[in-house]
């Protein structure tokens, strides 16, 4: 049992290392700017919600959260819709150019977003999509679709082929089989994929910032404007940062039991 105590200590230390910076952010978000800048205090001496009030009362602040949520949800939906059939094809069939296509898809995951900044800007401006949520959602498909196909293909290969064949013999058409039987079987795979697509779209800033100006501006980009004439408004900045963690927490809460199983079924 000595071993398991050492393990508990080790994991607790690591989690402490993960949480302390986040605690510091929360701590700052409940302080006034005077307190932040005057002295170092481990917890707020003058507890205040003023920083959060600023964000919830100013549309130019809270609209950022709505914008981010909108394009992230669109991206997750689009990604799953196109990736599911494709992953099925890759896991079940051999067809002309399948290996090359799969590798080509993966190469898009390897393309640095910085490379695509300018062409994206021009492309979406020319088709009139600049500063819309769908533009960001489509741009994020660049790295999310390949990842989704990759993860889902692993899950689907874990489902025995006999299931497909039995269903066809029972007279199921392909779409009905796919939606009624196959998708429920890979629920946890879809959950894990949705988690990863949500995550990578939610945290991305470079493309989202470049493709938007006012209407669809993400919260992450709005945060950069707290740098005012009087210096940085650390309190509001911390509060805004703390709020960006919440949607992620909700998502991880929903998929927590699937993530553990998650990649176990997957393969490269």
């Amino acid at each position: 049992m000595k071993m398991s105590k050492r393990k508990t200590l080790g994991i607790s230390l690591y989690i402490l290392f993960v949480l302390v910076p986040i605690y510091w952010l929360l701590n700052m978000s409940f302080k006034t700017n005077e307190e932040i800048l005057s002295s170092l205090t481990l917890w707020p001496q003058h507890f205040t919600l003023a920083n959060y009030e600023v964000i919830f009362s100013d549309p130019s602040w809270y609209s950022g959260y709505i914008n981010s949520m909108l394009y992230v949800s669109m991206n997750v939906v689009i990604t799953l819709l196109v990736a599911l059939p494709a992953a099925y094809a890759f896991s079940r069939y051999r067809f002309v150019g399948d290996k090359h296509l799969f590798f080509w898809l993966l190469t898009n995951r390897m393309a640095p977003p910085a490379v695509f900044l300018l062409p994206f800007f021009q492309l979406y401006s020319s088709v009139g999509l600049f500063d819309t949520h769908i533009a960001v959602a489509l741009a994020h498909c660049l790295f999310n679709v390949p990842l989704a196909v990759w993860i889902l293909e692993g899950f689907m290969s874990g489902v025995p082929r006999e299931i497909d064949e039995t269903a066809y013999i029972d007279g199921y058409s392909f779409p009905r089989f796919f939606v009624r039987i196959f998708l429920p079987m890979i629920r946890s795979g879809i959950g894990v994929t949705a988690f990863f697509t949500f995550m990578f779209s939610w945290v991305e800033l470079l493309l989202a910032r470049t493709l938007t100006s006012v209407e669809a501006k993400p919260i992450a980009a709005i945060m950069t404007r707290t740098v005012g004439a009087a210096g940085i408004d650390w309190g509001v900045l911390s509060a805004a940062g703390a709020l960006t963690i919440i949607p992620g927490l909700l998502v991880i809460w929903f998929v927590r039991n699937h993530v553990a199983k998650g990649f176990a079924l997957g393969r490269v």
């Binding site: 993960v18 949480l19 986040i22 952010l25 945060m223 992620g248 993530v259």
Partner: peptide, 27 residues
Amino acid sequence: LILLAIPLLIPWNVVGTIWQIFGRGDI
């Protein structure tokens, strides 16, 4: 699992901001 996953779900510039504050000698 949940606690470990938190850093992954923070927007990257917020990660930068957290450490920008956390690493400063004065605050």
